[in-house]
Design a protein around this nucleic acid. Sequence first.
DNA 1: GTCTATATGTAGATAGAC
DNA 2: GTCTATCTACATATAGAC
Lengths: 212, 212
Amino acid sequence: MTEPTRPMRRQDIRRENEKAILLAAEKVFAEAGFGGATMQLIADLAGLPKANLHYYFATKEELYRSVVQNIFEIWLQAANCFDAARGPVDGISAYIDAKMEISRRHPDGSKVWASEVMHGAPVLQDYMESTLREWTDGRVEIIRRWIEEGKMDPVDPRHLLYMLWATTQHYADFGHQIETLNGGKSLSDRQWREAKENIKRVILTGIGAQPA
Amino acid sequence: MTEPTRPMRRQDIRRENEKAILLAAEKVFAEAGFGGATMQLIADLAGLPKANLHYYFATKEELYRSVVQNIFEIWLQAANCFDAARGPVDGISAYIDAKMEISRRHPDGSKVWASEVMHGAPVLQDYMESTLREWTDGRVEIIRRWIEEGKMDPVDPRHLLYMLWATTQHYADFGHQIETLNGGKSLSDRQWREAKENIKRVILTGIGAQPA
DNA sequence: GTCTATATGTAGATAGAC
DNA sequence: GTCTATCTACATATAGAC
């Protein structure tokens, strides 16, 4: 005998279904790319008839756009730790931690984002030219100030940011390669920690920002 | 009046056409992904009727496989500079130079390779488990020796390799993002040089392998 | 070895009963 | 809001004349 639960309101149904669809879509887009993904696959994974996808997201492209925007938001949020910091050691450490956490917890989203950029950002070009550019310019300014204050060596801020993005994203985007070289096993807690510490150590030492 | 040229032999025709097809395919696969690429697009870019593609490469998958293998070969060749080196400064510098040159000269190939790995290496899994693993193990051994000989700090060799791959590949795979942040212009000679020098400096300093 | 025409499958998207 | 049946377009791949 199941206790009768309060019937879901339309809003609830919509929210739950959209969430399930977005989650499934992220996985399928990550594994197959935009062109290789099919609405049928996504529907099956979400446990819904294919026609329902079109009820919630009119077109495949609209669904894809939602997935990409979601991960982009997460990506930007990782910036907060960067801003509050008083120096490169705090700021860059926290940023690497945050980005590595994203690589670990949202590997599919990271791959979709990487794929979007690799193919010329067909749907997020406007974001890149506005939000991302502003974010980047702000961080460049912060790094420049740190250099002026003698808190780190005079390293080109942009190339340093690219380095941070590259090294952290790599663990998501090339996760399969890393797993294969790890004997086919995914990285353990310990190995993730080592990866993070390694990146921090090499980069912080490399820019002359030694931990106190 | 055109001078009558010696008629091409069958072999020549085959070689030329295959080359044109592979070049076009690399570009289309890079831009659209495997699923998004169409034989029609590749044929148009190669300047051949679509049916001819199937004459040279029976299936889309076979054509794709050839493209991926090509770039993988180039990728592996960059390893040579690494081996001959007497220490981390020489070896890692040369490797970064070689990989950055690949990112610059073969951005499409790099993207195809990245895409292949991101999607779980459906066609190159066997290579990754044999050739790539052996290559990696060999390089890990070299780095370990350098550490023992006191030529660099005790950094985890695997994570160091990932860092080298990530930072150099990034300039190809995320080239569009970098261009957008560069005001929509592709990097100049000078900027490429700066990028290379920056990576070398941060990493070599970071692992305690200072140039003499 | 080349190329037009076409066979065959499957994708995205929709109609319309429930 | 759900789901079956179906439309339409286009992709891969091939047949067969040249």
